[in-house]
Nucleic acid binder design. Structure first.
Lengths: 138, 138
DNA sequence: GTAACTGCAAAATATTTGCATCCTT
DNA sequence: AAGGATGCAAATATTTTGCAGTTAC
């Protein structure tokens, strides 16, 4: 029988393997964003580092997850909402980075506002990250 | 006599050295943002890689430059405007990343709009990056 | 059975640290 | 002269690549 995770994988034409299931489960069960190191820790080093890289890469390509821009060197990933099409994302929500617990989370309900760009600039994608103190840490 | 670059360094209590002058000049003369590799290239590998790291680090600490968040693994740096105080930045402008020429630039005149966060979230800093096609590449 | 995925080894890159020497003030 | 900055060597950490063995379909 198919778990929710299996369904996501099938829908994206990815074969259902152990690593993909476990890593995708992490995203489904965690509301926050994960970085590469988190995933290695949370899977209990069950998978090869290389497999994690490749799994994340294929999830990205299929539009199952998206990256969250940060000012430091750490790339973070989070689940995309269902309406993400392959190669074209609609994650126009704001991301929040907590300075206390260092969690990155998607504020799905907060839409990135429009901005008026100078003449000649053709926007394609908007990203917005707000940092501060989250709900839990106040 | 003091060059503009010397003045910036003095104002920030940094001793005036070759590497600092050359690297800071790069930022002053380039409107766009630079990443570590750019700096090594543009200085013609004149300085040790380690020196570049440390120079950027000290500029960051003094608030002479700021980082621009990206979704890939590359950190980019750009000059701060004069009103940047040490440790506390006022770079509340939008950054633009061109998908054609891959230049990152500061849109100093475009202010990041306010967003209404869910109850309980305490914002401290806002970052916004728009990607697309820039003025030059259309 | 075949194509795709994984794990291991290793290469290529990127970043950090310690220390002796040199330069700025 | 003194403190800070640099360059070199080397330790760490991160990411990529090739390939042989394994697994999903």
């Amino acid at each position: 029988m198919s778990t929710p995770v299996d369904i996501i994988l099938k829908r994206n034409q990815l074969s259902i393997t152990d690593s993909r299931k476990k890593i995708l489960e992490l995203f489904v069960n965690n509301s926050g964003a994960l970085e590469h190191a988190d995933i290695e820790k949370k899977t209990g080093e069950k998978f090869d580092r290389v497999t994690v890289y490749r799994t994340l890469q294929s999830f990205l390509e299929k539009g199952i997850i998206h990256t969250i821009p940060t000012s430091d060197n750490s790339v973070r990933y989070a689940l995309c909402k269902d309406d993400c099409k392959e190669g074209h994302h609609h994650d126009n929500h704001v991301h929040f980075l907590c300075n206390e617990c260092h969690t990155t989370m998607c504020l799905e309900d907060v839409t990135i506002p429009e901005v008026k760009l100078p003449v000649g600039f053709q926007p394609a994608e908007y990203q917005m990250v707000v940092s501060g103190t989250c709900k839990e840490c106040r």
